[in-house]
Write a protein that binds this DNA or RNA. Structure first.
Lengths: 120, 120
DNA sequence: CCAGCTACCTAGCGTCACTAGGCTTACAAC
DNA sequence: GTTGTAAGCCTAGTGACGCTAGGTAGCTGG
């Protein structure tokens, strides 16, 4: 699971996290860790800039919240645009994932039987 | 299906293509188009450098071949390392894809019923 | 007081797919 | 014969983006 793999997909999963409930950056990171069974354990330097990017794109917006006896946090929530984008991106994720799987599994579903299967 | 999505996955699908049969660059591009039902229609400027990269990593190697009445082509085929790497990468692809799907579909399996379900 | 956690931010780096261009050879049409 | 089109290969440069490394600040417990 290299770092490059995430490129182009980070925005999507961030939107997905925020679609369940508004959350601040740190919480987003924890949610991601949980929902992915520890496979996405992202550094802050990855997540914060991504959130800023999404806000610039107006797919999310933020508000500062100070919980009782806590320090202030920046809480993000999806905009209408964001929700729409998420649905769209879920579709293109499926399309992409299907395409990759199709290529990866093309003739190697069961490599042992390959010769057998492709025989006339 | 943006361009960024492919990052970190291109090598894997190229290895997969070459695992069925050796092929030259142009043929790899066509195979990819076919096996992905047109979703991967990659420019040469993407594929050739990637093939060179894989050769440097010794996951594939190449030989110049001149077919009857044709011009010479550079034909690539998997090395033992390449075949091993492919198996490994198939695993990490599944892991990655599962994680993304898990996050994407977490609470949005049926978004229409969400409000209903989360109501007190 | 200091360690450690929460919580936020950013400049710079390295990787990588893609753009845009160039080159050569086979084959068909005019 | 030359012009066009497709096959076939290559590479310098660009832009996007995740990550590293570093900083700031508040709260809690020993």
């Amino acid at each position: 699971m290299t770092a490059e793999m995430l490129k182009g997909h980070l925005d999507n999963i961030l939107l997905a996290i925020l679609s369940s409930a508004p959350a601040h950056g740190y919480a987003v990171i924890e949610q991601l860790r949980q929902r992915s069974a520890g496979r996405f354990d992202l550094p802050e330097g990855t997540v914060y800039p991504a959130l800023h990017r999404l806000e610039t794109l107006e797919l999310i917006d933020s508000s500062w919240v100070t919980p009782e006896g806590g320090r202030r946090r920046r809480v993000y929530h999806l905009t209408a645009n964001g929700r729409e984008a998420l649905n769209q991106r879920r579709g293109s994720w499926r399309s992409f994932a299907d395409a990759v799987s199709a290529v990866l599994d093309a003739d190697a579903v069961n490599p042992v039987h390959k010769a057998e299967a492709s025989a006339p």
